[in-house]
């Protein structure tokens, strides 16, 4: 792989209560690369992401991350007592320039009119878009997405996925998307890695944009391959 790296994980090990969750994970993510991390429930996907966020410590191995990294979680995790704009500005000194940037970020997710609203007045999809604006306003070098669409209804999920794809194309952060949705991974990612038994299993690159079309044979083939790796039998 050429170019600078955004993430380097080598020999990462982590166990909870004697049960190994990560058993020697190696993963490099290039700057600007969109990687989807698939894995069965309990396979350590979220643990790996939490390690990169500094919310968990590795037992062994190393993880290197860039300075500016942000996250969107499964739930919006907005601060209830702060208005939408304040949530986007969270942790930043609110200078005039930053306020403008936050408003611009809200405009990008289509919520500029809600800058003064309280989080509890937003719908689930709106709140998740605020969380997205909050993550993007810092122009992260690494964006960590922990199943950000899982809690959304089917229709909102489709539009939000489209929005994330569009925003990531525009801002080009390195992205690590943790998901268990194979189709979502194929639609969004440049590269898909599968975590199996605490180690990296499959590692596929999607070079052919046609493979992102649900009606294309390449899509079906890749989907079948990934599902097989995840241990889900697929009817041919």
């Amino acid at each position: 792989m050429s170019g600078p790296l955004a993430v380097r994980i080598s020999g990462a090990e982590k166990s909870f209560g004697g049960r190994p969750v990560l058993a020697g994970v190696d993963l490099d993510i290039a700057a600007g690369e969109f990687v989807a991390l698939l894995g069965r429930s309990g396979s350590g996907k979220t643990t790996l992401l939490r390690v990169l966020l500094g919310l968990e410590q590795l037992d062994a191995g190393a993880a290197l991350v860039p300075d500016r990294r942000t996250a969107v979680f499964q739930e919006p995790r907005l601060i209830e007592s702060t208005r939408v704009l304040g949530n986007v500005l969270l942790g930043q000194r609110p200078t005039a320039a930053r306020r403008d940037a936050a408003r611009a970020a809200l405009a990008e997710v289509g919520l500029e009119a809600h800058a003064g609203a309280w989080p509890s007045t937003l719908s689930g999809g709106e709140a998740q878009r605020v969380a997205l604006a909050r993550a993007l306003v810092r122009e992260p070098e690494l964006l960590l997405l922990d199943e950000p669409f899982a809690a959304l209804d089917a229709l909102t999920r489709l539009t939000t996925q489209g929005l994330v794809a569009e925003l990531c194309r525009r801002h080009r952060p390195a992205v690590l998307l943790v998901t268990h949705d194979v189709e979502e991974a194929i639609l969004l990612a440049d590269r898909i890695v599968v975590l199996t038994d605490g180690r990296m299993g499959l590692d596929v690159r999607i070079d052919d944009p046609a493979a992102r079309r649900r009606d294309h044979p390449a899509f079906t083939a890749l989907r079948g391959r990934l599902l097989a790796e995840l241990g889900v039998p697929v009817a041919a």
Binding site: L53, G54, L55, T70, A71, R77, L78, I79, L90, G91
Partner: peptide, 8 residues
């Protein structure tokens, strides 16, 4: 929420 605030 605390985790999120910490991350940011």
């Amino acid at each position: 929420s605390l985790e999120a605030a910490r991350v940011f």
